[in-house]
Nucleic acid binder design. Structure first.
Lengths: 158, 158
DNA sequence: GATATATAGTTAGCCGGCTAAATAAAGGAG
DNA sequence: CTCCTTTATTTAGCCGGCTAACTATATATC
């Protein structure tokens, strides 16, 4: 019984996420909002004027990724960047009127997608599913963190 | 009770997949294999010399995506492209010796990741989880297909 | 105060997905 | 046989993620 990628759950999850992303895109492209952007929108809506570093950490994304995303969203008029007066290194990000006005539609799109995705789940099943994902995050994170400490290759040759 | 992206299961799944991808990458970068490539490797291992169109369909990826991926894998020596003698439009893709030799490690990495991801699941839970994902694919696909037929915007204004 | 170090952000370049438009080869209509 | 259409692949350009290297500003040390 060799491992077959085509029947693996990991492979299936990739497919689900691709569908999810694709459908979200169709629902929101008319607002010039793209699939990676809602997390930023929501965080700014909750607390405007955060620094890129704060945002990157909270979104679990690298600062370089955010720089580029924010450039696009500035171009599309959803956010603006303003330097922090007290520290010229940090630039703070603010929602524009357009950014704020788009929030509702984005929220609706996400809520709809969530509804569709779990349409066939009972409330209990969905809760279980969510907890299982959290457990998976834990197990994957632990593995990733420990992978090199033990099986490591630091002292194996020579 | 407004929809909050930070507590949505969709958001959580994105995070899980990012972790999954990242860990796979760490496990296989020494073979010059990247996270999108295993599906291609496995399909060729199962049936060598498929056309790019066949592969794209089976992998649920656009032909343009495959073209680029194959270019890289040719450069890294995992596959080769040879034109179909009977039809000069189609180019068939074959595993090289390196491609074949790398299969085992890739398979192991994927199996390991699958093991880690579902480490805390009972066999029944994992099966249920898998079936739930399949159902999700179904519901999302149906929604995506029907989205424009009904709520469509073809005849709504004017 | 001048130099060294740390921190925030940007740029360049890569992988993986997409769409739209361009090639190139096969097939079909006349 | 020539012209038109279909089909397979490629190219260009975009979004989203990453790393590595660079810039600019703050801070710390001497």
């Amino acid at each position: 019984m060799e491992f077959d990628i085509r029947q693996s759950t990991g492979h299936l999850m990739v497919h689900v996420m691709k569908l999810h992303r694709h459908t979200f895109h169709k629902l929101t492209e008319e607002y010039d909002i793209f699939p990676g952007q809602p997390p930023l929108l929501f965080r700014l809506h909750e607390k405007d004027g955060q620094s890129q570093k704060e945002l990157a950490e909270s979104m679990r994304v690298k600062p370089a990724t955010l720089t580029v995303m924010i450039n696009r969203m500035v171009k599309n008029g959803h956010v603006v960047r303003r330097p922090d007066p007290a520290d010229q290194r940090v630039s703070r990000v603010y929602l524009t009127d357009r950014g704020r006005s788009v929030m509702d539609s984005v929220r609706e799109a996400l809520a709809l997608l969530e509804e569709v995705s779990f349409r066939s789940f009972s409330a209990e099943d969905k809760q279980l599913f969510h907890r299982q994902l959290q457990q998976m995050v834990k197990d994957l994170s632990e593995f990733d963190a420990g992978k090199y400490a033990e099986g490591g290759s630091t002292t194996e040759m020579e």
